[in-house]
Computed example of a mutant assay.
Amino acid sequence: MAFEVEVPVRHRTMWLAFTDPEKMARAVPGLTVDAVHTVPPADGPEGVAGDVVAGRLKLRVGAGGAGATITYRGTACIAGAEAHNGTLDIAVDAAQARGDGALAGYLRVTLGPAGDAGERTVISVVPELELSGRALEFGRADWHEAVETLGAAWIETLAAEFRDAVEAVEAEEASQADEVAAPAVVESLSNKSGESESEKITNPPVVPAASPALDESLSDDPLAAVWSGRYEKNRWLPLITALTLFLLIKRRRRHRADKAGADSSFRME
Rank of each mutant, 00 (worst) to 15 (best):
E167W: 03
D142I: 00
P183Y: 01
A152L: 02
A209C: 11
A184Q: 08
W143I: 02
T157C: 06
V147F: 12
E137D: 11
V169Q: 04
A177M: 01
I201N: 11
G151I: 04
E161H: 08
F138G: 06
L136C: 10
L136R: 14
H144P: 00
V166W: 08
E156M: 05
S175H: 09
A160C: 09
G133C: 07
V207M: 09
E179D: 09
V166P: 00
V206C: 14
D164L: 10
E148W: 02
D178M: 07
N203A: 15
A141T: 08
V206Q: 13
A181W: 05
A160T: 10
P204G: 15
E173S: 06
E148H: 12
A184G: 06
S193H: 04
A141S: 14
S211L: 14
E145I: 04
E156D: 13
E199R: 11
A135G: 04
L131P: 03
K192W: 05
N203C: 15
T202Q: 03
E172M: 05
R140I: 09
E156I: 01
A159Y: 00
E195F: 04
S196T: 05
G151A: 15
L136H: 06
E172H: 04
Q176S: 05
R163S: 10
L158W: 04
A146Q: 04
D164R: 09
N203M: 12
K200F: 02
W154R: 08
V180D: 02
S190A: 09
E161I: 06
F162I: 02
Q176P: 05
R134L: 13
P208S: 15
V147Q: 02
N191F: 08
R163G: 13
I155F: 03
V147N: 01
W143Y: 03
E148T: 12
V147D: 00
A177E: 07
F162K: 06
P208R: 15
A153Q: 08
V147H: 03
S198H: 06
G151W: 02
A153D: 10
H144S: 14
S211V: 14
A159V: 00
A182L: 09
P208W: 15
W143L: 11
E170P: 09
A168R: 11
T202F: 05
S211P: 12
G139Q: 14
K192N: 07
A182P: 07
A165Q: 12
A209F: 02
P205A: 15
L158T: 09
V180S: 02
A177C: 01
V180H: 00
F138D: 07
T157W: 01
H144C: 12
I201W: 13
A177K: 01
E179F: 05
E145Q: 07
E156K: 10
G151N: 05
K200M: 06
F138N: 06
V166L: 06
A210P: 10
P208T: 13
T157G: 14
S193P: 12
E187F: 08
A177N: 03
E130T: 08
E137F: 02
E197H: 03
K192Y: 07
S198E: 11
F162V: 05
E156V: 02
A141Y: 05
A171G: 11
L129I: 11
K200D: 10
T149K: 04
R134G: 08
G194N: 11
